[in-house]
Structure formats: structure tokens, C-alpha cells
Nucleic acid binder design. Structure first.
Lengths: 136, 136
DNA sequence: CTGAATCCGCAAGGATACTG
DNA sequence: CAGTATCCTTGCGGATTCAG
């Protein structure tokens, strides 16, 4: 909404830049493909922190998820090697889920994501505070 | 699909764990709220690497995005303070987009995400190779 | 308890055409 | 060139019910 009349920026678009950009795009695509969506990272995070959990336990921890979705997500996560499903054939049957070593490669991802989210939330809170106590 | 008969895991669920988990959930929620979705991080990444870009240029860089979605995403990103829109009223009008300093706080997020995606892709490739040259 | 099956609504996103 | 408008498809996810 702001207009200017100086000259446009040079839009540095060398070949190297282009390739690097495409590579990033590709990598982001791959990442989202396996751990994208609304729930996957939350589930992995819950299992990372809470340790081995049962189905209902997990559904309570991951607030708001329905049984259907949780079931589906767990299946996909298992297929991709992020979690392990253990069935104990006692009576009644007990099923637990736990993360695999491969999930631990997501550690840095989860950390930075959570850290950024926390910082961002604080920023928003401050922005709001400054707005309400506005005196500039 | 694997059945066991040993005893279930202890499911460590202390209060501290519960809080930490909830906090992580919250943070992930916040993060996804602003930079979630299919395109936002890709756009920011493109602008980070390619520098200031024009609309059509951006649409070519971020492969597969439609004009409608790009327009919408750019608007949201601007609202949330991630990018800046510059209008140069020459003839014809030129509009450029560039990231703001706040977008730079996403640096670590993008790095880890991209790095993980790259590593994961290589892993998948190797798994596949081992499958095709299977001799174990 | 641990899911699977079914049905359904909504919103994200795609295709295309059009405007200043 | 930089979008907007319109229409349409798809998939995510919720609610409910049922089964082992």
C-alpha cells in the first residue's frame, strides 16, 4: 500500500541463486510430504517428551485430535519409520506407540520450530501490549 | 503388525512432562498458524535466497503456485510482517517483494527444515537402492 | 481399549478468464 | 505486469457408529 518512485531493486538472479532456491524448494517439499500436515509433528513431539504412550493417552495429550485422524496419522508415521507400534496380547489388549531412533533426527527441527513459535508468541503479546498502552 | 507379550512400557507421565508437552503443542500450533500451509515457507525461502523479486518472477521461482494463491499468501505474509511490498509508479508499474528483518528470525527454522529434507531424501534414495540391489 | 467404517462439511488450493 | 474474480475439485478432518 506504500508507493515509491525510486528505481526497482536489482533482483539478483544468478544461476547459482536459482539452483540453490530450487534445491531449497525441493527439500521443503520433501519435508512437508512426510511430516507436514496439522498433526504429525505434534504427535512425534508428544511421544518424544511423554515417552511410550497408548492410543487414548495420546489422544488426550495431542489436544483436539480425533480418533480417526490419530489412527491414520499413526499408521503413516509407522510406515515412514518414525514410530513403532507395540501390541501386548494381554487381556484386554494393550497397544503402545514409541518413537524410533529415526524420529530423533527430527530433534533439531522440533526444537527450532518450538523455539520460534514461543518467541513469536511473545513478540505478538508485546506488540499487542504496545498497542493498548499506545502513546506514540 | 508385530505382536509381543512382554509387559507394557511404564508410560512416564509426570506433571512436568505434561506441561512441557502442552507448551510444545502450543508453540507448534502458533508456528503453523503463521508459517504453516503449503507455500509460505517456500516463498520466504525464495525471497531470502533470490532477494527482492517481482510478482511474476516469484511465481516462476516458487514452482507450481498459482497467481491467486501467490497473491493471497503474499498479502498474509505482509500482514504478519514477514515481507515488504514496494510499488514503483513508473510506467509500467513495478512491484517488488522483499523479506523484512523479522523474516530472518526464521533462518534457523528454514535451515533445519531444508537440511532435514535433504538428508531424508538421501536416506530414501539409499533405502530404495538397497531394495533394488537386494542381496541380503 | 483400540481402533475401523461411514458420512459429511469446510477450506485450501487449482484453472481459467478478465482488469487496470 | 500485477494482480482479481469466478468456479470447481480435492483432501483434511470432525462426528458418529460399530467391531474385535
Amino acid at each position: 500500500m506504500i508507493e515509491q518512485n525510486e528505481k526497482p531493486a536489482p533482483t539478483c538472479s544468478g544461476k547459482h541463486t536459482k539452483e540453490e532456491c530450487a534445491k531449497g524448494l525441493q527439500a521443503l517439499e520433501d519435508t512437508f510430504y512426510v511430516i507436514g500436515g496439522k498433526w504429525k509433528l505434534k504427535i512425534i513431539n508428544a511421544l518424544r517428551i511423554g515417552g511410550s504412550s497408548r492410543f487414548n493417552q495420546l489422544q488426550q495429550t495431542v489436544t483436539g485430535i480425533s480418533a480417526r485422524i490419530l489412527s491414520k496419522e499413526l499408521k503413516e508415521l509407522e510406515l515412514n519409520g518414525f514410530i513403532k507400534r507395540n501390541v501386548y496380547t494381554e487381556t484386554p489388549v494393550v497397544v503402545t506407540y514409541e518413537i524410533t531412533p529415526y524420529s530423533n533426527t527430527l530433534g533439531p527441527v522440533l526444537s527450532t520450530l518450538i523455539e520460534w513459535g514461543t518467541t513469536h508468541r511473545n513478540k505478538i503479546k508485546n506488540d499487542y501490549k504496545e498497542l493498548t498502552t499506545s502513546k506514540d
